[in-house]
Every structure is written in C-alpha cells, then in structure tokens.
Design a protein around this nucleic acid. Structure first.
Length: 279
DNA sequence: TGGCAGGGGTTGA
DNA sequence: TCAACCCCTGCC
C-alpha cells in the first residue's frame, strides 16, 4: 500500500496524542498506530504534512479536528501569563473528536488513575472484548458487549471499583435508557445533566465527554492538575478559595474556547509542574 | 523484600 | 463535607 500525504498546518500529532485525551495509540518508531471507531489507522507526521500509511484521510482529518481554527482560538483567550505560556508550549495541540461511548467508558475507568494505568486498562479491554479489526488491532468494545460481559469479568482487566460503574453504564446504554446520539442536540447544561445520569459519571467526567465527544468547546473539566494551576497561578493569595468559586471563575473567564484553554493549561502543567506541587 | 502513602473521581450518608 | 471504593507505583 502506498502512503498518502496531506497538509496539516499548525498540528502536532505527538503532542495531541500525548495530552491525556486518548489512551490507546501506540508509537512505533515514527509512526502512530491506533483505531478510529472501527478503522485501523497508521500515520506519521513529517513537518506540516501527515503521511497516512493506513486509514481514510477524511476520517483522520475529522478525528484530529484539523478544521479547528487554532489561531482564532488562541486570539479569543484572555491575555494572561499562565495561559500565554501554556498556549505557546502546546502549539499544534488539537482537541480530538472521539467516539461517544468509547470516550465515556474510558473516562469512567480513569477515576483516580494515572495515564499509564488508564492506557493499560483501555488496551486490555480492547484485546479481551473488542472486535479485532486488524493484526493486533482491536476496536473499543461496544456498550452492548460490555453489558453482556458483566462486572466480575471486567475486574480481570484490573478495573477495581470502576468495573461496577463501567458495567452499569454499559447496561444503562444497552437497555436504551439513554441515547448518546439523540442527546447530542441538547443545550450544554442539559446535556451535562443527562450524562451525569450514567453510573460513574460525575461533573469532571461529564465535562471531559462534553469536550471530547460532543465538541462543546466551552466545557472546562476541573481535575486535580487544573485545580492546582488555578490555585497557584490565578489565585496565589487566596489559599482557601472554594472549588465552587473556581468553577464559577472558569465558566466566565476563559471564553467560548475554554476547553482549549483547559487542555493547554493541563498539558503544560503535567509536563512542567512535576508530581508534587507546593500547596 | 515488604510496608505504606497516594493517585487525572464518584457516590452516598 | 468526608470516607469508602480497587489496584498500582514509587519510595523508604
């Protein structure tokens, strides 16, 4: 199969895949192998071009949101030092358009887990329960499949207490108690409330899903990293500021592309702040 | 070699 | 507001 090259200005494949949005991609030398929905994909970046060894170019461009106007997004940000530094550091990092169930399930399993663990769980679930779509390549198991598998088998993938939530969420969807596609037309606030009906989905996971699977680019998930950034960089002299006040601040301060601001602050913090931060 | 603390969150009291 | 949930890793 001959490789196809497409232009991808202002895009950094490695940063995008390494920014804690998706967890199943594997790097082999310069190539990244992964699955988009059920399609095996193998790509590498050469300067401002993407060399596609396997996969449909249109699917790949859509998945990596190559149509998002990054310059315009950066211009919409409030002018402050922490965000300017993060934006500079994350040049070319784009928000991925993820399949909805896969995104929900992956973030349910991410609770109190670090990236390598989430990745290990994600790959194991694919291998054990996902459809094989290529040599050593597996799609994420469907909700119906995981609903049939049940909690005790899921625990074998080292999910711990998350197995119960994942099994229950899979059943919730398989039984038709929520339709992930039809709720896509709801306003963001209502959509968030609908997502929180799923077992194991609280405010943080719901906002990740809003951002990564429903393209609500103003959604701002607050995890421990972002909370550290907000407290240290935005409210250094107000040590006892409440989580509620932080939420209110993020809802108004970062603007229509708050989700991008969050992703940049998050990725920058993870790679520069170290494990422990003075509090 | 083994014990211990703590981690990208949710839930229910 | 806080403990409990399960497992893994790093550190001593």
């Amino acid at each position: 199969m001959s490789a196809l090259e497409i232009p991808c200005p202002l895009f950094d494949l490695e940063k995008t895949l390494g920014s804690g949005q998706v967890f199943h991609w594997t790097k082999l030398e310069q190539r990244f192998q992964g699955v988009i929905h059920r399609e095996p994909v193998e790509i590498e970046q050469i300067g401002d071009h993407l060399r596609i060894h396997r996969g449909d170019p249109e699917t790949i461009c859509h998945y990596f949101s190559l149509d998002h106007p990054l310059e315009e997004i950066a211009r919409s940000f409030p002018a402050d030092l922490p965000l300017a530094a993060a934006t500079d550091f994350c040049r070319g990092l784009r928000l991925i358009r993820q399949p909805r169930w896969e995104c929900i399930a992956t973030f349910i399993t991410s609770a109190l887990k670090q990236v390598p663990h989430i990745r290990q769980i994600s790959l194991d679930l694919r291998r054990r329960h996902g459809e094989q779509v290529g040599p050593e390549v597996f799609a994420y198991p469907t909700a119906a499949t995981l609903a049939g598998v049940g909690e005790s088998i899921l625990r074998e993938s080292r999910l711990g207490f998350r197995a119960k939530n994942l099994a229950a969420a899979a059943r919730f969807i398989a039984e038709g108690r929520i339709d992930l596609d039809s709720i896509g037309s709801l306003p963001t606030g209502e959509l968030e409330r609908e997502l929180c009906r799923l077992p194991g989905v609280g405010p943080k996971v719901a906002r990740c899903v809003l951002l990564f699977a429903y393209e609500r680019l103003d959604a701002f998930p607050i995890d421990v990293w972002i909370e550290r950034v907000l407290r240290e960089r935005y409210f250094p002299r107000r040590r006892n500021i409440t989580a509620l006040r932080l939420r209110a601040f993020t809802a108004s301060y970062f603007g229509p592309y708050a989700g991008y601001a969050q992703q940049y602050l998050f990725h920058h913090a993870r790679l520069t702040m170290g494990r422990r931060v003075a509090s």
